[in-house]
């Protein structure tokens, strides 16, 4: 079996459906998602994952009903504040990808900043929360940054381009977990998922728990990653 993935990303899908199946308002689904998030952070850390990214809110999510967006903003703020000391204590470095829209409430932006500052020196797992994130927007930003720097067209390489993406120290994503059975990319970290393995568990995000996460890791470890090459000769190899 191959090693534990270095960088795992989760697309947290199915909160609304989870609530609808219980005849609850959609917002109840978001509230239930909090427990999963905390569970997965701990499971990933314990399993030896070094980078965990969570897709919390996309640029397209602004199109949801205003009340739901408002509720989400308040909820995220509460979650961030509630768990800040524990994230610090567990040595998790937190940062927020995206989070640039002026529609984000000022207080929430301040809390994001504070949490990032607070945990900046941590050397355990790095938790990247994609909030108000769009993969294409990041790529466009990188292109702008290159042009602004006056880079010559012939000098642009994949590596140089990646250096202009937000958080250039982030390694490529090895495994993406998208819950609820949906099989789409949805504009998520487009550049970094180029060679990622994807798993699509049928579980809705609020029901997703540490054992499910470990199952996904096992699935990944059995997969044969070829990066576009030919499969190696594996005579007698148990994997």
């Amino acid at each position: 079996m191959r090693a534990v993935p270095r960088h795992v990303a989760c697309v947290m899908d199915g909160n609304g459906r989870w609530a609808q199946r219980r005849s609850l308002p959609r917002t109840a689904g978001h509230r239930a998602a909090e427990a999963t998030v905390i569970d997965i952070i701990e499971a990933a850390r314990a399993a030896g994952v070094e980078w965990l990214s969570l897709y919390a809110f996309s640029t397209e999510n602004w199109n949801r009903p205003g009340t739901e967006v408002d509720y989400l903003m308040r909820l995220v703020r509460r979650v961030v504040r509630k768990h800040a000391p524990l994230l610090l204590a567990r040595g998790i470095r937190c940062r927020f990808l995206g989070a640039a829209d002026p529609r984000i409430p000022r207080e929430l932006a301040q809390d994001f900043d504070d949490l990032a500052t607070l945990t900046a020196d941590n050397r355990g797992m790095t938790l990247t929360v994609a909030f108000d994130h769009g993969g294409r927007r990041d790529i466009v930003e990188a292109a702008r940054s290159l042009i602004r720097n006056g880079t010559q067209a012939d000098d642009v390489t994949e590596r140089l381009f990646a250096d202009h993406l937000p958080f250039p120290d982030t390694p490529d994503v090895d495994l993406v977990i998208r819950t609820s059975g949906e099989q789409r990319i949805s504009n998520f970290m487009l550049w970094q998922v180029a060679y990622a393995e994807w798993v699509f568990p049928d579980v809705l995000w609020p029901d997703f728990r540490a054992p499910d996460f470990l199952t996904c890791l096992r699935t990944y470890r059995r997969r044969d990653r070829r990066f576009g090459g030919v499969p190696p000769q594996t005579n007698g190899d148990p994997s």
């Binding site: 408002d70 308040r74 800040a84 000022r106």
Partner: peptide
């Protein structure tokens, strides 16, 4: 972060 949230944190634009 530890300061308790006020009653209504009015979501003003950043």
């Amino acid at each position: 972060l530890l300061t308790p949230l006020g009653g209504d944190a009015g979501p003003g634009p950043a």
